[in-house]
Each structure stands twice: as C-alpha cells, then as structure tokens.
Amino acid sequence: MSLNIGIIGFGYWGPHLARNFNLNKECAVARIADLDQKRRKEASENYPRCLVSSDSRDITEANDIDIVAIATPVFSHFDLAMSALDNGKHVWIEKPIASSSEEAMRIVEKAESKNLIVIIDHTFLFTSAVIKMKEIIDEGLLGKLHYYDSVRANLGLFQHDVNVIWDLTTHDLAVIGYLLGKEPQTVGAVGSSHFNSFIDIGYVTLHYENDFIAHFHANWLSPLKIRKSMISGDRNMLVWDENEREEKIKIYNKGVNIVSHGAPNTGFADYRVGEVHSPLIMNTEALKTEVEYFVSCLSSGVNPHNNAIAGYNVMKILEATDKSLKLNGSPVELK
C-alpha cells in the first residue's frame, strides 16, 4: 500500500504529522497547505518534493491525495473534513473533531455514506501507558471498576477561545471512553473564572451504570504541573502518573472487603494492603504508533477505535459540561 498524504496547517502540530507520516514506509507527504507565508517557506525547505500551497483545495480536491490530515483551528475542521470526504479522501483530524456535536455527527454520517475512514487525533490513546492500561483493564486485573479520578493541572496556558475543561479534560474524556468502551449517563460540571469569561478551574463528574463514577480536575492556576489519574477496582488499584519518567503505571494490591454480620450496614471494613507492581512500558512515540495504526486500519478495513463516532462522543460530553456549568453543576443527561 502506498498512501499520499496532504497536510493542511503547518503551525505547531503540522510538522509533527509530516515527520511521522514520512517515517512510515507506506506513506509519503505529497502536499502541504498553510495560509502563513513563513510556514509555507518552512514546509518547502523541509519537504522540497512537496507541493506547498496557500489553498486547502489544492489538497482536498487533489486526485493524487489519499489522506487529508487537518491541523488547523477548530472552527475550520468541519468545512475541511466535509470537503475532503466529498472528494473521496480518508481524513485525519486534530482534536477536537469539530466545533459542535452537530457538526461532528454530520462528519460521521458523511464518512459512512462515502465508506471512508475518519480518525480523530487523540494522541494520548497511543501512549504506551494508556495501551498498557487498556490491556490491564481488559484482562480483569483490577476487577470490577469503582471509579476513575484524574488531575490535570499547571500554570497556564490560558486560552482565548475555550475554557480549561475544553482545553485539558478533552484528553481524559478520550482516554476513559477508550478504556471503558461505554458512555456516561449524566455529566456534571462546576468551575470558576478569575481573569476572563472562561473558567480557569473546573471539576467534571461523570456517572455511569453500575455505580461507576469518574471525576476530572482541570486547572490553569496550579503552581505544580500535575498529570495523575487513579483507577480503582475491587481487586487492585492503578495509578498513572504522566510526569514519571520510568514507572508511569503502578498497580497497588490494595482494597477493602466488607465483612457482614447479616443485617444491613452492620459489617466492618477489612482493609487489604499488599505489594506494588510497576509493569514494563516501552518508550515509543505515540504519534508514530497512531500513524501505524491508521495505516493498518486502512489496509485491513478495520474501523479505528478513535474514529469520528469517538470524537462525537467526546464532543457531546464537552457540550454537556457547558450546560451543567450554566445550571451551577446540576447533572445533565446524555441522549
């Protein structure tokens, strides 16, 4: 299989996409488009064999392009994706998929009608740590899951178009959707803003069936950079610390058993404290793994797990957090 790639947007993420697509033996970056002259000059210097243009249509309508990779501001995702799909291209979209769930669903429907694949670039799903966590959960090593608790905090960077939940929690929503393979029943969110109209500290709570709960803390006003998540099960508990260089995942043989005396609420807690295990995790570049996965899906016809529907599901939850914020944290049902 030989795939020609067209990249729209050569700002921060576009060069990373170009490098990783070119590293894949099945791919070749053939065209690059960007509105900025300086970025076009950089693209031409780094990829002299590419056709570099200021017009995205030179990619979305080009006969020699198989995959259109979109790395532009969110407001442009929908129009670019629809144009690419209308012209028979598979599409790679930097997260989030679009500006609204309505636009996201239209991308889903267009891709299905054209029998094309759309992948949403939730790169965190392809880190070695998240892949290992998925294996651990699917193998049942944690047992019945109780909760997911995440903190994603740092000082800045303040955004001018989205709040802290949309900026930071998007990663975690994609991760939990991948790990669990199901969607929440209700979404609640609270937060506060201190410098502009967008909240800079936010807390999101998702309720699932069988009493599973997920909680996310997103913060632009933290003196420390924190990237830590906990997943608790009735057999073992897992801690994922992205800031750890070596032992990113630790599995704790800890838990609690309720010894009942027969009558309701009369038992006592028997706490279990055992060993701690850190599984071996290979240090591979997530974006490289994601490109390989996309190519394999195109070759085999398998629908990727980070497809347009997954992007739509994340968008639905983000929109529900906005509704809940306006309701002072009251839960919003997902439909």
Results as ranks from 00 to 15, higher is better:
Ser2Val: 12
Ser2Gln: 15
Ile5His: 14
Ile8Glu: 12
Ile8Ala: 05
Tyr12Phe: 14
His16Pro: 01
Asn20Cys: 07
Ala28His: 04
Ile32Phe: 07
Leu35Tyr: 04
Gln37Glu: 14
Ala43His: 05
Glu45Cys: 03
Cys50Asn: 03
Leu51Lys: 13
Asp58Phe: 07
Thr60Asp: 10
Ile70Ser: 08
Phe75Ile: 09
His90Thr: 00
Val91Gly: 05
Trp92Thr: 04
Lys95Leu: 03
Ser100Cys: 11
Ser113Glu: 11
His122Pro: 01
Leu125Ser: 03
Val130Asn: 11
Val130Tyr: 09
Ile136Ala: 06
Ile137Gly: 06
Glu139Leu: 03
Leu141Lys: 13
Leu142Asp: 12
Leu145Arg: 05
Val164Lys: 05
Leu168Val: 04
Leu173Val: 09
Gly181Pro: 05
Gln185Ile: 12
Ala189Leu: 01
Ser192Gly: 02
Tyr208Asp: 09
His215Trp: 02
His215Lys: 12
His215Ser: 13
His217Ser: 06
Asn219Thr: 06
Asn219Phe: 02
Asn219Ala: 09
Trp220Tyr: 14
Leu224Ile: 03
Ser232Glu: 13
Asn243Gly: 05
Arg245Lys: 15
Glu247Ala: 11
Ile258Met: 08
His261Lys: 15
Asn265Ile: 02
Thr266Gly: 07
Gly267His: 07
Asp270Cys: 08
Val273His: 13
Gly274Ala: 09
Glu275Ile: 10
His277Pro: 05
Ser278Glu: 08
Leu280Val: 11
Thr284Arg: 14
Ala286Ile: 08
Glu292Gln: 10
Val295Asn: 00
Ser300Thr: 14
His305Val: 11
Ala308Arg: 08
Ala308His: 09
Ala310Thr: 10
Lys316Gln: 13
Glu319Gln: 08
Glu319Phe: 04
Ala320Val: 04
Gly329Ile: 00
Ser330Cys: 06
Val332Leu: 06
